[in-house]
């Protein structure tokens, strides 16, 4: 089961992803892709760690080359996020177009997982013309998103905490707890 979650910054993507993952009882893996560099990265990592606390995730820190990751068969896997992973492959590993590499890593993990939830980002909607490297980054994210979306069983867009199911069975994948939740997912 492959589920892709997209949306803007602080729109509740991670919370929706974790709600889906924790509805499964299999062993949970969290693939962290953010390189801990600078104050804001630490803050973001701390914030996400707090959210995951007591949810029994085994964390795998892998900033590039996710095809090397070894997970247990039939486990639940959460990967955050394509934006970081793509930037790391492009700017650390110096791969200009890592789209197929990232996709094959994803399919390898998915072939062993019971459920694989991937958080990605919408980065191309501010209408600003950036330098060439950044435009290339926007293009790569768009292409990876399209490729994953094609393979995914379910694609969700988070709009201010509201999960909009773009692909897949609404009743099966839209957890009731999100619709009826007392707090907006990003504040949980």
């Amino acid at each position: 089961m492959l589920i892709l979650i997209t949306g803007g910054s602080k729109n509740g993507k991670s919370s929706i992803a974790e709600k889906i993952i924790t509805s499964y009882n299999s062993k949970r893996f969290y693939i962290a892709t953010m390189i801990p560099f600078g104050e804001e990265a630490f803050e973001a990592i701390e914030r996400h760690r707090k959210i995951r606390l007591n949810k029994h995730f085994e964390t795998i820190e892998k900033y590039t080359d996710i095809q090397e990751i070894d997970i247990d068969n039939n486990s639940s896997v959460l990967l955050e996020c394509i934006g970081n992973l793509c930037a790391n492959e492009m700017f650390e590993n110096k791969i200009e177009k890592p789209t197929d590499k990232i996709l094959s890593g994803i399919l390898k993990i998915n072939s062993r997982a019971e459920v694989f939830v991937i958080v990605t980002n919408q980065v191309g909607e501010d209408g600003i013309e950036y330098p060439k490297d950044t435009m290339n980054y926007i293009k790569n994210i768009g292409e990876i998103n399209k490729k994953i979306s094609k393979k995914a069983d379910c694609v969700i867009e988070a709009v201010y905490g509201i999960p909009i199911v773009l692909k897949g069975d609404r009743l099966l994948y839209q957890p009731k707890s999100i619709i009826q939740g007392e707090l907006p997912p990003c504040l949980l």
Partner: peptide
Amino acid sequence: NEIGSGIIPLEKSERIWREQVGKVGCLLAE
């Protein structure tokens, strides 16, 4: 407006604004 679907701004105050708009939007939607 939805403003969070672009490149992370270089300016810190713009980053904070963009993130706060996301959080406020989640609260409003809830």
